[in-house]
Simulated scan of single mutants.
Amino acid sequence: MSGICQGRVVAVTGAGRGLGRAHALAFAAEGAHLVVNDLGVGLDGTPDPASPAEQVVAEIRAAGGEAVAHGADIATTEGAASLITTALDTYGRLDTLVNNAGFLRDRMLVNLDEDDWNAVLRVHLTGHFLTLRHAAAHWRAQSAAGRTPDARVINTSSGAGLLGSVGQGNYSAAKAGIIALTLVAAAELARYGVQVNAVAPAARTRMTEHVFAHTMAAPDTGFDAMAPGNVSPLVVWLGSADSTGVTGRVFETEAGRITVMDGWRPGPTDDKGARRTPTDAGRTARALLAQAPPPEAVYGAR
């Protein structure tokens, strides 16, 4: 195989199904060597007897590519560290980390208990942090030894992290946290030759099949707008050497659309130069709000 990732070593978490599987196959098609991580659990995080990571590895090898399975829990220090170790022990290097693993426990806020809150933040946000931390430590050591890497990290956020989503307070908070983590990591790791970006994808997976269940391929083109593979080309490019100079960015991607998100920027402002009264603060706030564009609607509230 040859392509824009020829010879690069790529680790993808949650790669047994859905978006992760599509990313792994797309990287392999571009010549990458894969570490395919999947814990093999159900949509709610409970154990699943299947071994989807091994199945994806078999697909990649059948197509002539190279891949190894990794089944540890990346939301633990040991599991995250072993992901990096597996890449180094198998291929001698790690070039790209794709953080994708996650699951849902949706509840309205008044019904959302602490266990469901913690479980979702643990897998999405802590899982991103731990793998990123251990990969970054390796790349920092490489840089200190005079072998500055050309490394990439692609984190997975969501429209829920950008706008919020009714019934998904835990998921939305975790995905928003991933964006902030991406920005910090991009700033801190640039000196070590590491670029860090995030994608906010929309695609039909186990986590979103209830949303996109009725989205079908266009009859005239055969293009399935919600197929997970539509997201993977951007992820592969961000994980390749071709994306040099692109870091600290968040991309929303769906079907054939790619959007560079603008993020938080200062809007209308007023500086009195002195302490305000509550009434004055409120009057000023309303005047500034009248000059600012209205916020985008939260998903599920439109």
Rank of each mutant, 00 (worst) to 15 (best):
R93L: 05
H134I: 05
A285I: 13
A173R: 07
L238N: 06
V184C: 12
A174F: 14
W237S: 08
V260Q: 06
S172H: 10
M1F: 07
D224E: 04
G248H: 10
V120A: 01
R286L: 14
D115C: 01
E78K: 10
L121I: 10
L34A: 00
A67E: 12
L189H: 03
V184T: 15
R8I: 04
H23A: 04
M1L: 05
T156S: 14
D113T: 05
V194S: 13
V12S: 08
G177A: 02
F103D: 10
D73T: 03
E209P: 01
P278N: 11
M108N: 09
P201N: 09
N37V: 05
A80E: 09
E209N: 10
D106R: 00
D280P: 08
L288W: 14
L112H: 08
H33D: 00
N100C: 14
I4V: 14
N100T: 14
G256Y: 07
P219K: 03
I258C: 02
T215K: 07
T277E: 02
V194M: 07
R152C: 15
G229M: 11
V68W: 11
M108H: 13
A203D: 03
A11T: 15
V41M: 10
I84L: 06
V235K: 14
A69T: 13
T148D: 00
F251D: 02
A185E: 05
I74L: 02
A198Y: 02
A218L: 06
L132T: 15
R17P: 14
A69F: 11
G267R: 07
A198Q: 05
V196W: 10
T259P: 00
V41D: 12
T126Y: 00
Q168I: 01
